[in-house]
């Protein structure tokens, strides 16, 4: 019965072809370092799901941001778990993406024909850091407030256009409700959309070119 259902679906969706081309690709040689990209993808999805769940209770306003997170932690069933996963997943994602990048660098996997995969990967790394930076402000506690004050100040130290960058980041000369709102918008809409799009291209390129062999002694 299930076989019939599957065959019906497969005939129309091409599930077998999808599986063969997307997941059943040949690997040069089994190596745990080659799994870091998948780990990063998994973390991205995990962050996306827990993040969506957090928006059910979180409010990005200076009046309520801190209280709403307090409520998530103490008032909602398993709120501590959802936020905990999001909190630690964020740190882990930065670490995993960075080690993934190091692996590609060390094994010289960025060379022809994978230069674009590498460049897009750099974009993904920077976007991941951007997610960390914008997400850090959202709890609106002392730590996040001053971290963002310092962070935007550093961005503002760029010669000539520094002041403009600072005001663009903060939504004005001071850290305010506008800052919180635009960080929130960047954190849940703009950066994730950019990440998802670039991840799509990144994955397409990996499937197209296959995974690179580790360099041998002759290389």
């Amino acid at each position: 019965m299930w076989k019939k259902v599957y065959e019906w679906l497969d005939e129309r969706l091409g599930l077998n072809d999808l599986y063969k081309n997307l997941l059943d690709r040949p690997e040069p040689k089994g190596n745990w370092w080659n799994t870091l990209g998948s780990a990063a993808l998994f973390l991205f999805i995990l962050q996306g799901v827990t993040g969506i769940f957090l928006t059910v209770y979180y409010t990005p306003s200076p009046d309520h941001a801190y209280d709403s997170i307090n409520y998530i932690m103490n008032g909602v069933a398993f709120g501590w778990l959802i936020r905990g996963i999001h909190h630690w997943g964020a740190t882990l994602m930065v670490v995993v993406v960075f080690i993934h990048m190091l692996r590609v660098f060390v094994t010289a996997s960025f060379k022809y024909p994978r230069e674009l995969t590498w460049l897009i990967g750099i974009g993904l790394f920077l976007l991941t850091l951007g997610m960390g930076f914008t997400g850090y402000l959202l709890p609106w506690n002392q730590q996040s407030y001053w971290a963002t004050t310092v962070g935007t100040q550093i961005a503002g130290s760029v010669p000539f256009i520094g002041d403009f960058i600072l005001k663009a980041l903060r939504g004005g000369p001071d850290l305010s409700a506008l800052t919180l709102q635009r960080f929130f918008s960047a954190h849940i809409w703009m950066l994730p959309a950019a990440l998802a799009g670039l991840i799509g291209v990144h994955l397409y390129l990996i499937i197209k070119h296959g995974e690179s062999n580790f360099p041998s002694k002759e290389d």
Partner: peptide, 8 residues
């Protein structure tokens, strides 16, 4: 837990 969280 996510379902419990949502329906809390």
């Amino acid at each position: 837990p996510a379902i419990a969280y949502l329906l809390d």
